[in-house]
Design a protein around this nucleic acid. Sequence first.
DNA 1: GTCTATATACGGATAGAC
DNA 2: GTCTATCCGTATATAGAC
Lengths: 188, 188
Amino acid sequence: MATKGEINRQRIISTADDLFYRQGYDHTSFTDIADAAEIARGNFYYYYKSKDEILSEVIKKRGDDIKHMLNEWDQDLPEPRDRLKRYVSILTKSEDEIQHYGCPMGSLCTELAKLRHGLQDTANDLLDIFHDWLVTQFSLLGHKADANELALHLMARLQGISLITNAYQDTTFLKREADGLMQWVEQL
Amino acid sequence: MATKGEINRQRIISTADDLFYRQGYDHTSFTDIADAAEIARGNFYYYYKSKDEILSEVIKKRGDDIKHMLNEWDQDLPEPRDRLKRYVSILTKSEDEIQHYGCPMGSLCTELAKLRHGLQDTANDLLDIFHDWLVTQFSLLGHKADANELALHLMARLQGISLITNAYQDTTFLKREADGLMQWVEQL
DNA sequence: GTCTATATACGGATAGAC
DNA sequence: GTCTATCCGTATATAGAC
């Protein structure tokens, strides 16, 4: 049963999630979140006692979302090679978001590193979820010995492509690189 | 002749340059810069009329620094392949900075995109300086037709490696990827 | 649980004495 | 050119009426 309080808590977190992605964590104020979620600013602290706590919940939510997505991929795609291709296709499937706001994980990790924020390690857990899943897929493909290296390599490729696409606000490069990565996965 | 005013202007910009890199632009206050440069906060506006103007000057300085560096490389290294290797070796030569603060250009572009800052295009000019230089080197190497693609590809690789290194605060991956890129340049 | 009003700190930016 | 004092807006966070 979803009480009204739980609905409000969820709305705060998903609104903050969206705004942190589009504007950055530090640059997003309580007023921004309150206005977007249509919840009075003062009423806010009834649900969460600090901005850090909201960030912590946002990261937790993102982790749950990623795990849920990877579980779906595992169920839909029995072949590890198809799963890796699905991973690469994140680029083309979310090219509009990447163009305007970059990668949600990558840009958050970059920002928290500059802020020397205490939740930096927590944000890295998001990278680890993908990393561990990729290691599994590369291992299943018969690259057990260098699965860790391949996983990090592929993640870094996606991060670099996202960053350049976001900086130039243009998806031409992204499309070409996504094609190249698909062939790379194909030939593994 | 360097007047005292010019020395102060330079000190403000190079202090801001350093702090914008390590803390981010938005997160760096006038107080931070004033304290680090040992110049009174009020005295500050005698030299620059806004924080944006300081950012603009910092970007200009970074551009000048990059151009100067590339000119030196051109003079020291007659072979385009050696020049490309020198570019890749940025990673290992500045691995400590990358580990703690990421790539100065990449992290600035990422931040300005989130802030929807008016100087975003100006920051992209820094990327263009490298891009144009890389296009020249790939063309000289006989890859004139796809020099643009190769240049963007290589830049994105460095950005991805820098971001992952910065997030995990570990240079193991960077060293391995730098080796891989060296081989890639060798086999072109 | 929800609202208004407000405390407190710090941001960028300015005025004016010296 | 250099300093102190200060304006004004906004940030996070809290108090307390309802």
